[in-house]
Amino acid sequence: MRSIIDIMDLSVEEIDGLLATAEDIIENPKKYADACRGKKLATLFFEPSTRTRLSFEAAMYELGGNVIGFSDASSSSSSKGESVSDTARVISCYADIIAMRHHKEGAPYVASTKASIPVINAGDGGHNHPTQTLADLLTIKREKGRFNNLTIGFCGDLKFGRTVHSLISAMSRYENVKFVMISPDELTIPDYVKQNVLIPNSIEYKEVKSLEEAMPELDILYMTRVQKERFFNEADYIRLKDTYILTPERLQSAKDDLCIMHPLPRVNEISVAVDDDKRACYFKQVLNGKYMRMALILKLLEVEI
């Protein structure tokens, strides 16, 4: 029985296996239609989510399984004061696998130490979001055809952007990957990402404030939303929320084969005018996320096809 809390819980070889499974699902969806018949996924979402929760649910339904769960902490026993540990133990009696999102960092890890079924971290505070990273990796593979020799720009909220932290960790295992961190001073990449990932792996990275200056060298531009829910002070949020807005004009100096990614939801950091640009890949990410979650559920439930 295995849980996935951090993208680094998966080896490069295991990720390759998941990517291969996802691509096989894309090619042969019928082959997987009954793969999880009789199995139940519990989606425990203590924090609001549209994409991730529905993606997990769609993934399980397309595997022939069922879904139980809640999408709001107020409708769960946590509103009565139940601990994450107890919730994990209880849900283990009802379901075969858990996907948990929680606003507190480390909550899915705590659940994984008490549950008797696999736990998937579906996002914990500003910490990690490994299944979004799996979606990102499939998108990079399908759009760029490689994981090596890439310059990736991360733009926006790099402090609380859990998808950024997880993708940096995942990409740091490939050769000749460079990062350009584009953010205001208040939202720079956390110290632990530098100390745990970038410095020990001698990854080339730079921190800049100007998106325009960074644009020409990028193979991938990963935009992020400044997340209102991560701020204790609304004035700080209002001051920072419109720091970077990607428009067709700002893309003029970008490479023709740039891959523009965003974990969504977006607010206004990518103008809708960019949506028609062939380099916009963020809606493809959404679809890829479902396939990778299907592959992950199959792996953790040890379903052989």
């Binding site: 606003h103 480390g106 890890y109 910490h127 100390q195």
Partner: peptide
């Protein structure tokens, strides 16, 4: 934002991540 701020019964555990610089990090 750490889970230990709301789950009172959880042990506060820190793991040695960088011996040279004496860095411990919360396991959560």
């Amino acid at each position: 934002r750490c889970i230990t701020t709301v789950e009172q019964e959880l042990q506060h555990v820190f793991k040695l991540c960088d011996e040279g610089n004496k860095v411990y990090r919360c396991i959560y």
